[in-house]
Amino acid sequence: MTDRLILGIESSCDETGVGIVRLGPDGALELLADQVASSVEEHARFGGVVPEVASRAHLEAMVPTMRRAVEEAGVELSDVDAIAVTAGPGLAGALLVGVSAAKAYAAALGKPLYGVNHLAGHVAADTLQHGPLPARCVALLVSGGHSQLLLVEGLAEKITELGSTVDDAAGEAYDKVARLLDLPYPGGPPIDRLAKTGDGCAIAFPRGLTGPRDAKYDFSFSGLKTSVARWVERRERAGEEVPLADVAASFQEAVADVLTAKAIRACQDLGVDTLVISGGVAANSRLSGLAAERCAAAGIELRVPRPRLCTDNGAMIAALGAHLVAAGAPPSPLDLSTVPGLPVGTVQLF
């Protein structure tokens, strides 16, 4: 068998992504193109993603992003062998633009379509950098839209959700705390920068759902966010100066502590020796730093893809599509639906 080119289209939130991956006869993946157009700046003044603004931006960006991806890969669209697209979970209107486009590309090229799960795509992204996953691994997905702990027993075969956030996603908590501290949106990078000059042990913010009777693998960040707000407001009311760097560092410490503690506990409970961390928040320096420390101490191999692969992109969808093609999965039908609330266990949609 010869090489196959897999195209991936992502439009579940505010990034329009198109990636192209070469799937070798031995199953090896080579990333040929990874183009992303982001509407994040258009959402900044609203302090969060506005679905209609994102959908409009996807429509404008789809064809130009596709053109850039094909150019970057140095191929023709007609060379593409299969098309994978995010069918869920995500924003309904945003997903619809990508899936509609993917169907048209598949029909016009006469090539099979694979409607795939965005969350599984985040895990697949790591295989572009670190090669095939072991038979079993635990994946921690953290971004503005998701905070999930998964047991991955084959990307194309079986992904089980161990736990997820019961309220805000980790990235959402970052955005809300950033606003509280008058930092720009999205909140992750400015808090991370500010935290480096502060003391993470200065304020003991609560660690959600870490009591003995709490769900072992679920997360909660809403209480943490409220507690940061109360702390800041108490200081202000008392006319005292707010030590912004200490607040940022202590908040970040609480988030990183809970995420890594639960992820490592899952690895240990399940007898898994590999942890993958992906999603936009994976780029956070304290999260990756603390995860590295704790994984080393526990004898767990830590895999974190480079930041560009962690955030939403088409390459991760192409990678997941390639795994499905390699596993001999049948294509999705052209009347495929989008499923905004697609559960993580459904890797491909029919």
């Binding site: 996807h58 053109r67 633009v97 486009a101 029909a107």
Partner: peptide, 8 residues
């Protein structure tokens, strides 16, 4: 978006 992709 369907028309645009087909045209491309």
């Amino acid at each position: 978006v369907t028309a645009a992709a087909l045209g491309q």
